[in-house]
Design a protein around this nucleic acid. Sequence first.
DNA 1: CTAAATATCTTAGTGGCTAAGATATATATT
DNA 2: AATATATATCTTAGCCACTAAGATATTTAG
Lengths: 170, 170
Amino acid sequence: MRAALLLELEEAMRRSSAQGVLYGQTVANVAGIANSDLECMDILYLEGRVTAGRLAEVTGLTTGAITGVVDRLEKAGLVRRERDEKDRRKVFIAVVPEAIAKLGQFYVPMQQAMEKVFGAYSDEELRLLLRFANEAYKGVLAATEALKGLLDTPPEKRPELKLKKRPRQP
Amino acid sequence: MRAALLLELEEAMRRSSAQGVLYGQTVANVAGIANSDLECMDILYLEGRVTAGRLAEVTGLTTGAITGVVDRLEKAGLVRRERDEKDRRKVFIAVVPEAIAKLGQFYVPMQQAMEKVFGAYSDEELRLLLRFANEAYKGVLAATEALKGLLDTPPEKRPELKLKKRPRQP
DNA sequence: CTAAATATCTTAGTGGCTAAGATATATATT
DNA sequence: AATATATATCTTAGCCACTAAGATATTTAG
């Protein structure tokens, strides 16, 4: 019984999550920016002002790639580079205020859809969903770290699929 | 009160969803295949045997790009091309059985994390989550379509951001 | 005060993507 | 039947974002 429910739940989550990815890709497409660029905007929106290095860390891109991302975002007028005066090696990337409005328009359909979905739930039910979302976030974060950890285990122990050379992580 | 709850919920969803994207990217990275390739595997897993054209439609990639995706997946031994005998223009892409095992290992951390999260909920609560996941899927799907629709509205009406040339959709 | 570590940028080369058109098959028109 | 049009995939040329390696600038350690 419960096992079947869990299986169904897993598939439903997977399906909605996959569709979420597609929504993001569509936003990038419509906005005319690269997927990674939008992903970085999302991280900046959630984490606030972060360094270029942190962006590389979170996205899994190389620092060189991040330089390109930030160059494009800066040229598009969405972010600003701000040298850290305490440690002048660091560069903080900050979202410019107008960027929210510029990009926000593309999330209107999503917000409307979610409003409609949420509308059918009581406050108590929403609190349950909130609790779940927070726990799911922590779980997925931990799972991501665990998966990255696999990269450190002897590669000859993980069979079947060819693996790329291990990306730099000093 | 409720407005604040909704806002918090939206951010929590956004955060967990963003982390989900990162998990997927990490899987692709560890498995040594391109992001789009893994995305197509996911679609194939969910939809079963689909045509190359349908993959292009769902992913938003061009048919030319899909040819490349399927070439790589076929060479990696994850899928098989199967010509439709009814309509010999069509090519069905089918996941080979071993692919599940090959890729499945990379989802173990995620499954364990979700098992742990789900474990804290009663059957009734899980049914609520299931209902939500299904409705969210439908909502996001509709939102994606709505957003794509923006591409058809006069471009000079959508301000601020430069837009790519409208991709082909005959 | 040199040496090592850290943070970002630069450069060359690679690979996946788009756009356009080619090929093959199917359907509609006369 | 023969021709034209539509559909589905593949092919090709060129572009752009990415990686890997190393350069530069700054900080911290010995």
